[in-house]
């Protein structure tokens, strides 16, 4: 990672960054934030749009939670997190509505629902509330990238098999429509998880 070579970002920074991408991948490993992953992954366009929206909320709320962590009493931290997160979600909601009505129509209710996405509040509670602003920022970026990779791969597979086209080029003339319907989402993520478990089992045997 090129980030680790920059001065001032030491080993804990790299660890915070990498955790969300690999070992603590929010979707495939921790099984949280599933709803948007399945619902909006019918095309690459939706997948990228949703990832950017989640990344903005996650990084923003991680930084702000980390900034106010010393002034926030433990008993009321969850309501405070919710207010911070919902502020960012409202910003994203209105920005998307203003600049990309098409994306807004596709993502629909899943944009305001980022506020209850377990990934965002989970990282706030587990990481940002206990760590410095810099580390929380890196953790936010790492987790967002982990989320993006999974969403992108699922979006790519579903678009390829369900619509039969990629980057405007027709690949399959008779696509399997089922892949962009709800059952296709479940199947795709099941297969991905199966492959991941298979490799982990194989690696632990060697």
């Amino acid at each position: 990672m090129s980030k680790s070579n920059k001065p001032g970002i030491s080993a804990p920074g790299t660890a915070a960054f990498l955790y969300g991408v690999l070992k603590g991948n929010p979707v495939l490993v921790l099984m949280i934030g599933l709803c948007p992953v399945l619902a909006v992954s019918t095309s690459i366009f939706n997948a990228v749009g949703m990832s950017i929206a989640v990344a903005f909320v996650l990084i923003g709320s991680n930084v702000i939670i980390s900034l106010v962590r010393k002034r926030t009493p433990g008993e009321i931290r969850i309501p405070v997190f919710i207010i911070i997160i919902s502020t960012f979600v409202t910003i994203v909601d209105y920005v998307i509505r203003a600049y990309s009505p098409e994306l807004y129509r596709q993502l629909g209710v899943f944009i305001p629902l980022i506020v209850v996405n377990c990934i965002v509040i989970g990282r706030g509670e587990a990481f940002a509330y206990k760590n410095t602003v810099k580390l929380s920022f890196l953790d936010g970026i790492g987790t967002s990238i982990g989320f993006f990779i999974v969403l992108f791969v699922i979006g790519l597979l579903r678009q390829l098999f369900g619509k039969g086209e990629l980057l405007g080029k027709v690949i399959f003339s008779k696509p399997a429509l089922i892949m962009i319907l709800p059952p296709g989402g479940f199947i795709t993520i099941g297969v991905l998880m199966g492959i991941l478990t298979y490799y982990n089992l194989k690696k632990s045997k060697v």
Binding site: L181, P183, G184, F186, I187, G190, G194, I195
Partner: peptide, 22 residues
């Protein structure tokens, strides 16, 4: 199969149920 135990097979099951609800 070992690699599919737990969540992967649960997703396949959910897929079939979703198909039924369609």
């Amino acid at each position: 199969p070992k690699a599919l135990q737990g969540y992967p097979v649960a997703f396949f099951l959910a897929s079939l149920m979703s198909l039924a609800f369609l």
